[in-house]
Design a protein around this nucleic acid. Structure first.
Lengths: 135, 135
DNA sequence: CTATCTGTTATACTATATATATAACAAGTA
DNA sequence: TACTTGTTATATATATAGTATAACAGATAG
């Protein structure tokens, strides 16, 4: 897998994992219906506990990004991915708010902030254009 | 004060407080050099513990948004506010990244996401245009 | 049918973060 | 001197995060 964890980070491991799986979906590295490693396999690969992987999988299943079946294991949502509904937008606003506020307090302009976000968004959708090990 | 806490939120109280103080600075409701309530006074006002207020104050002092003097108490940075330097931008990118990724995964377009952020930014800089108790 | 793999559940334990509660200290001020 | 300030030090309670084992039930390959 393409997962890279920072065990020293203050960001919980299960959240780093869930975030990177979502990023994989957003970028297309994980495609609809694609199977993911079992909780035991991925845990062993990453050197973490089975329950930590399971916690990330469960969170993404809850959000609708994954489906989980017996024996078949975990697969990326084969149907339509969850939408940016009002509930998500509200959560998004709540999370963005303190970031926008501190940016403003530090004198970052609208344009600068938007530019930074746009750059991130595009980098996520087209990861090959960034930091790759090209010849 | 204008602080409103949600004691049931999963967001730590000291972070809610720090965030709203920064938002006060960004909006101009808190101006340069303005004194803030003592840790004991504000704690009593908000119905929380002195140390929780102190934790928020210390974090903002550490970032450079506040100055703290003996007896004179706590004041908003009278000099120049902290800038949006590269360290901040890096932290900002790290925090924005999972939000941008999930937005993309849910099919939210660049424009929609930028629009939402822009709306928030402006709402913060001009809070009187939102949710006020107008006649 | 049997062995094996899957997610799932249940305990138990440790460590850390959050929040509160008291108490005391040192410095500045009226 | 008396009071308020931030600061420091303990102690306690709770929740979250992470690990470690163990066991269970369903699906599948042999």
């Amino acid at each position: 897998m393409f997962i890279e964890l920072d065990l020293q980070s203050e960001v919980p491991i299960y959240k780093q994992l869930a975030d990177q799986l979502i990023e994989g979906i957003a970028s297309g590295k994980l495609s609809s219906g694609q199977p993911l490693p079992s909780v035991r396999t991925l845990a062993a690969d990453l050197g973490i506990n089975l329950h930590t992987v399971n916690k990330a999988y469960q969170a993404l299943k809850q959000e609708g990004f994954l489906e989980i079946h017996r024996k078949q294991g975990v697969i990326v949502q084969p149907g339509s991915l969850p939408s940016a509904d009002e509930a998500f937008r509200e959560r998004l606003r709540r999370d963005l708010r303190p970031l926008a506020a501190e940016s403003a307090a530090r004198g970052m302009s609208e344009d600068e902030l938007q530019e930074l976000l746009l750059s991130l968004y595009r980098q996520i959708q087209n990861p090959s254009s960034q930091g790759g090990t090209s010849p």
